[in-house]
């Protein structure tokens, strides 16, 4: 089937009911207006043969790619393809899993994140993370946002910073009268925006998002997606998603991962194809990518 990557017939796949496939071309993000070619103007992360292991098990095979500054990069692929694992090695959250180790070169502005003199805490201050399940702290809304600056010893006017971050996370208007209320009183979508506010309060350069909308309804998801597009003006965002339409809607570049199954039936993640989102969704070079985005696989 060639509809999707046939540049002459970009609209031809729309009959979802008949083909059982999703129409991704219809949702490709237009607002971001980025015209992308394969070259990345400003590199934040430079990955060279990155391999991630859990003990003896290799979860991710050699990944070589670059992540661009102030771009939204989406990692897509079926379950178990190592995309979350790879994302968690960007800010050394994998250090928390016993036996996890990263090989190859994972550089942040040219500095190897896994160099022996690197402090994971410094890494995480610069590279924030939003998790799959909104993990707000069991404290007030205010304290959730103020926590990061407080533990990092930032000398700021906390009230102003809390307001600024909640505003940027498009949550201020909804919670400004309830800042002392428990964060648990918020809805799932609000909690996830609070987590984003909490994350930007420490002024990171990068925000990693690990399936941030997986537990949210479509309306909450749309709000988060809008927010991501706004944040991309100031932050570099890497998002892992199961939802191909989401990747198509929000991202500038898309990396497609898949899992190889070896002789013993063990799955190893690998990067199949990486490029501007528009190209990946309209004219993928690799047949596996095409199978995946046209819904034949995964």
């Amino acid at each position: 089937m060639s509809e999707i990557h046939d540049p002459n017939a970009p609209q031809a796949t729309s009959d979802l009911a008949n083909t059982g496939r999703m129409d991704v071309s219809a949702v490709l993000g237009e607002e971001r207006g980025t015209p992308l070619d394969d070259a990345i103007p400003q590199v934040v992360f430079d990955l060279n043969n990155v391999r991630v292991f859990y003990g003896d098990f290799q979860a991710v095979r050699d990944v070589t790619m670059q992540i661009g500054r102030h771009e939204i990069t989406a990692f897509i692929g079926p379950s178990g393809c190592g995309k979350s694992t790879l994302l968690r090695s960007f800010n050394r959250m994998n250090d928390l899993i016993p036996g996890a180790r990263v090989e190859g070169l994972l550089a942040y502005h040219g500095y190897n994140i896994y160099a022996p003199d690197v402090d994971p805490i410094e890494v995480r201050r610069r590279i924030g993370m939003v998790f799959q399940k909104p993990n707000v702290f069991p404290k007030s809304i205010y304290e959730n946002v103020a926590y990061g600056p407080k533990v990092n010893g930032m000398k700021v006017n906390m009230d102003d910073l809390v307001e600024e971050c909640l505003t940027r996370a498009a949550l201020w208007d909804e919670v400004k009268d309830d800042l002392k209320k428990s964060a648990y009183a918020l809805s799932g979508g609000q909690q996830q925006r609070l987590v984003i506010a909490r994350c930007i309060a420490v002024k990171p350069e990068v925000i990693l998002m690990d399936e941030p909308c997986a537990s949210l309804d479509p309306i909450a998801t749309a709000k988060i997606e809008d927010l991501m597009k706004q944040l991309a003006a100031d932050y570099t965002i890497v998002i892992v998603t199961h939802n191909m339409q989401q990747a198509a809607r929000v991202s500038d570049r898309t990396a497609f991962f898949t899992a190889d199954v070896d002789a013993e039936g063990v799955r190893h993640g690998r990067l199949v194809e990486y490029g501007p989102t528009r190209r990946i969704f309209t004219s993928p070079k690799d047949p596996r990518t095409e199978d995946y985005i046209s819904g034949r696989f995964g």
């Binding site: 410094e122 702290f137 533990v151 909490r198």
Partner: peptide, 10 residues
Amino acid sequence: IRHGSLALGA
């Protein structure tokens, strides 16, 4: 909860 805190550089 722990991961959320550590991810903020705590």
